[in-house]
C-alpha cells in the first residue's frame, strides 16, 4: 500500500497542497480545531461516496474473482482464473492497445487544442463570445446522438463528406470513400471526434485559470521584452500548471473509460480493430459474463491510476528540469 500512496504526494505537491501531517502529539489546539473543521467539511462527501461508490467498487473487484453463472447469478469463486484468461486473450490485448493509444493521442490533442482554444478565447476582441459558444457546442451535444450524427456524416452512401468531395470533383459517386469501413480511417476519425468532443472541457478549465492570472504579470513580461511565445512558455503555462494537471487527470479518466463515443460510431468495427476496453466490458456484460467484465473493469481502474501517476511524474520531472 505504501507504494500506492507515494505518488499521491505528487498530486498534493502538484496541486500545491501543504498537507504534511504533523505527528498527532505535537498538534496545538489551533491545529486540532482546523482538523475538526476539515473532517466536518469532508464528512458529507465521504458518507455520500461510501454509500454509493464503495459497494460497486468492492462488487467489481469481488466479481473479478468469480466465474460462471449468468448476469452475476450463480457464479463461483475462481481465484485469478479471469486474470489468467485475460493474459491469454488476444482480444483483450488488442482492446488494451486501442485504449492506450486512444488515451495518449486524444488526451494530448485535447490538452493542446483545448489550451489553444482557451488562449484564443481569452484574447480581447469584438465578437469573442462566438468563440465561447464554439467552446461549448461540441460538448453540449449528447454523446449518444453525437456519434450517430458523426457516423451519419461519414456514411459511405449518403454521408455529407462523400457528397462534399463529389461536389468538389475529388471523387465520383462510384469511388466514394468507405470512411468507417477501413481500419486506419475509422481509427483516425475516432481520434478526431474524441478530441473535437472534449477539448471543450480543457478549454473551459484553462479559460477559468487564465482569468485568475493578473494583468500585471503580462505587463512585466512585456516590459522585459519577452515575445508572445516566450511569455506563454515561461509565464502563462507555468501559472496554469495546477489547472492543466487537473484537466489532464479528468481527461485521462474519461478517455480510458470511453464507451458511447465509439459504440454508436463504429461499434468496434471493422472486425475488432476499433474495440477498446469500454466496449469489451459492455459486450461481456451483455454476454452475461460478470466475472470477466468485472476483471476488465478492474484492469481499467488500475490502468487509470497508473496513467495518472505516469503523467504526473513526467510533468513534475520536466517542470523541475526547467
Amino acid at each position: 500500500m505504501q507504494a500506492t500512496f507515494a505518488p499521491t504526494d505528487e498530486v498534493r505537491e502538484s496541486t500545491g497542497m501543504s498537507g504534511a501531517a504533523l505527528p498527532p502529539g505535537r498538534r496545538g489546539p489551533l491545529a486540532r480545531r482546523e482538523e475538526r473543521l476539515a473532517f466536518a467539511m469532508l464528512t458529507p462527501v465521504l458518507l455520500a461516496l461510501f454509500a454509493l461508490g464503495l459497494y460497486p467498487a468492492i462488487t467489481t473487484v469481488w466479481y473479478s474473482l468469480q466465474s460462471g453463472g449468468y448476469q452475476g447469478i450463480n457464479t463461483s469463486y475462481a481465484g485469478f482464473a479471469n486474470y489468467i484468461r485475460l493474459f491469454h486473450d488476444p482480444l483483450f490485448w488488442s482492446s488494451l492497445r486501442f485504449s492506450l493509444l486512444f488515451s495518449i493521442i486524444t488526451v494530448s490533442g485535447q490538452m493542446i487544442l483545448g489550451t489553444a482554444l482557451a488562449l484564443f478565447a481569452n484574447a480581447k476582441f469584438p465578437g469573442r463570445w462566438v468563440l465561447r459558444a464554439a467552446i461549448l457546442f461540441p460538448w453540449a451535444i449528447p454523446t449518444a446522438t453525437n456519434s450517430v450524427i458523426w457516423a451519419y456524416m461519414f456514411n459511405y452512401q449518403y454521408g455529407l463528406f462523400n457528397s462534399i468531395l463529389i461536389h468538389l470533383h475529388v471523387i465520383t459517386p462510384a469511388t466514394t470513400i468507405n470512411w468507417l469501413g477501413g481500419t486506419t480511417s475509422a481509427t483516425v476519425l475516432i481520434y478526431i471526434i474524441a478530441i473535437w468532443k472534449a477539448n471543450s472541457l480543457v478549454a473551459l478549465l484553462v479559460l477559468a485559470g487564465l482569468q485568475s492570472i493578473p494583468d500585471e504579470i503580462y505587463e512585466a513580461a512585456r516590459v522585459d521584452g519577452a515575445t508572445y511565445f516566450q511569455t506563454l512558455w515561461r509565464v502563462t503555462l507555468p501559472l496554469l500548471r495546477p489547472t492543466l494537471i487537473v484537466a489532464l487527470i479528468v481527461r485521462i479518466i474519461e478517455s480510458l473509460q470511453a464507451f458511447d463515443i465509439i459504440s454508436a460510431f463504429t461499434n468496434g468495427s471493422p472486425g475488432t480493430s476499433t474495440q477498446n476496453l469500454g466496449l469489451y466490458i459492455y459486450s461481456e456484460i451483455s454476454n452475461g459474463d460478470f466475472g470477466y467484465s468485472s476483471t476488465i473493469a478492474t484492469v481499467v481502474m488500475v490502468l487509470t491510476v497508473a496513467f495518472i501517476f505516469f503523467y504526473l511524474r513526467t510533468l513534475t520531472r520536466s517542470a523541475s528540469a526547467r
Binding site: G181, G182, T183, G268, S269, P270, G271, T272, S273, Q275
Partner: peptide
C-alpha cells in the same frame, strides 16, 4: 466481429 472482419478483408 469475425464476419465483419472478413467482409473488411482483414
Amino acid at each position: 466481429a469475425a464476419i465483419n472482419g472478413v467482409l473488411s478483408n482483414q
